[in-house]
Design a protein around this nucleic acid. Structure first.
Length: 502
RNA sequence: GACUGCGUAGCCAAGUGGUAAGGCGAUGGUCUGCAAAACCAUUAAUCGUGGGUUCGAUCCCCACCGCAGUCUCCA
């Protein structure tokens, strides 16, 4: 029996707004597509949260035994600048501002993005396709939609005919919007006169002469519309219908709605079985975004250089912080919350280090069947909580209980003999796996420098000596002076000493 | 204005038709020469307001208030 059969997943499908049982199109396999970043700037922490959420989802699916193909795109073309007069490519605009080639920008920010993902221990997707690598496919599907009568050309651009689509399908199925209201209340855009209706969206945009990124097409030189890339890339690598499509809440409308319309129009079937939307990271209750000026760069967070921060926080602290809330809730970001997370994570991290060093005495002396039952229950709960809409917050609550148990064992090694070796091993492997494989919380070690480690050990040796001599004044001075420079000495039960860098 | 979602202890944050996880903080204790860490115990929520359904609602429905997001590029 596969783990995914033992612990079947249920998840909230944005399409229905309800929690549903997760069933894959092909048994044992999962196709998952997530809207990736637009690489025209550094990724901020808000972006990171979304990718973390889907990192957890893909990790857990794999952990349960599914074979997962996870596709996350890189948008390196196609976004229109909102306040620009004409449909202008965001990347193209920035290129001119900085006097750089578009591809130079794309490369720089793609590398930054991937680097940040690595720091947070967010695993790379199976395929990371770029929009510019799929121009041909985007032209082809645009042609197909024209042939089907669902798109029309106007002045070198091609638009999707939403009203036409809506006559046989439901536009608004995902976002709950009403097409009539959209037509009435839609904002005037400058390319309005080209479009039949305000809500029609571009599949292909004609490039102005000064536009740098451009490709030849049957309609002249231009570039693809924003929504079409995701449809093309998801279809190409996952098929016309696939299991999971994810992204940030802010993409639900219009982006995902448009994707559904295009794909359904072109292929005659609904593209996605389960839509998952992750919620926003907020700062003082407001969405973190570049334009609001309240965004944090990951590097500012690690070093503490952002004016709103008191100090720096490690990547794993931040990762833990985000996992304490459910992906579908907004998460508010503050110094206080981050400090609490730092301490909480340290606790789990210490237990992780400890459990790795603990071994069972291989025989039971004074069996405690109640404890045994509790442990087995905790193991089971980890899976059940994760299978319940990837509830990392609930899972962490169990891990905290497990950490307490680990500390107890570490303090009283003889208590290990109260449970069977089999249960202990299960407990141990579950704790380690949940931490490292599923939640991706890597062990953070304080000593990472041999020279420093050696130096401190010399001081520890000295301190042991003077302590044995009952020279407490000197032993305290060694400890206090080290503490003053951020090194915390801890005396163990059996006279051993360890240290920790703060 | 329309649509979507949220409002739980000092702070962060889960969750449920039968009065509510966990973390941080606070208090007391154990351990320690003293600390730190750890362990034990204690602490704090009339679950935004007002109605309705129900034997019973914080969780279901309605209204209202407040907040956020989307409707324009956005994770």
């Amino acid at each position: 029996m596969k783990l995914y059969e033992k612990y079947p997943i249920s998840l909230t499908n944005s399409l229905s707004g309800k929690k549903e049982k997760f069933e894959t199109l092909v048994p044992g396999f999962v196709g998952m597509y997530v809207c990736g970043p637009t690489v025209y700037n550094f990724v901020h922490l808000g972006n990171t949260r979304t990718f973390l959420s889907f990192d957890i989802i893909s990790r857990y699916l794999r952990f349960l035994g599914y074979k997962v193909r996870y596709v996350r795109n890189i948008t390196d073309v196609g976004h229109l600048v909102g306040d620009a007069d004409e449909g202008e490519d965001k990347i193209g605009k920035k290129a001119r501002l900085e006097q750089l080639e578009p591809m130079e920008i794309v490369k720089r920010y793609t590398e930054d993005f991937q680097n940040v993902m690595r720091q947070f221990n967010i695993l790379p997707p199976s395929i990371e396709p770029s929009a510019t690598g799929h121009i041909v496919e985007q032209i082809n599907i645009t042609k197909k939609l024209i042939d089907l009568g669902l798109a029309y050309e106007a002045n070198g651009s091609v638009y999707f005919d939403v009203k036409k689509y809506n006559s046989s399908h439901h536009y608004g199925i995902l976002s709950g919007r009403n097409i009539e209201e959209l037509i009435e209340s839609g904002r005037e855009l400058d390319s309005q006169d080209e479009k039949r209706e305000k809500i029609d969206f571009a599949l292909w945009k004609k490039a102005a002469p000064e536009h740098i990124m451009r490709w030849p097409s049957p309609w002249g030189d231009g570039f693809p519309g924003w929504h079409i890339e995701c449809t093309v890339m998801s279809t190409k690598y996952l098929g016309e219908t696939f299991d999971i499509h994810g992204g940030g809440m802010d993409l639900k409308f219009p982006h995902h709605e448009c994707e559904i319309a295009q794909a359904t129009g072109a292929n005659g079937k609904s593209p996605v079985r389960f839509w998952i939307h992750s919620n926003m990271l907020t700062v003082n209750g407001q969405k973190m975004s570049k334009s609001l000026g309240n965004s944090f760069l990951p590097s500012e967070l690690f070093t503490g250089s952002h004016p709103l921060l008191e100090k720096g926080y490690s990547p794993m602290t931040v990762r833990f912080f985000m996992l304490q809330s459910h992906y579908s809730s907004t998460l508010d970001f503050s110094n206080e919350a981050l400090n609490a997370a730092e301490k909480g994570f340290k606790k789990l991290n210490n237990a992780l280090t400890l459990i790795k060093s603990l071994t069972h005495p291989s025989k039971i002396t004074n069996q405690n069947s109640e404890l045994e039952k509790t442990l087995l229950d905790q193991i089971d709960k980890c899976f059940q909580n994760m299978s319940d809409d990837f509830n990392t917050a609930k899972t962490l609550a169990v891990l905290f209980e497990m950490a307490s148990q680990i500390n107890t064992w570490a303090n009283q090694k003889e208590s290990l003999a109260q449970v069977s070796e089999d249960t202990f091993e299960k407990f141990k492997s579950t704790y380690i796996a949940m931490m490292e494989e599923v939640l991706g919380l890597k062990e953070e070690t304080s000593g990472n420098n041999d020279l420093l480690d050696g130096t401190i050990n010399v001081l520890i040796g000295l301190r042991k000596k003077v302590r044995a001599d009952k020279n407490f004044a000197l032993s305290d001075k060694i400890r206090d002076d080290l503490k003053a420079i951020g090194i915390k000495l801890k005396d163990g039960k059996e006279g051993e000493m360890s240290y920790e860098i703060e």
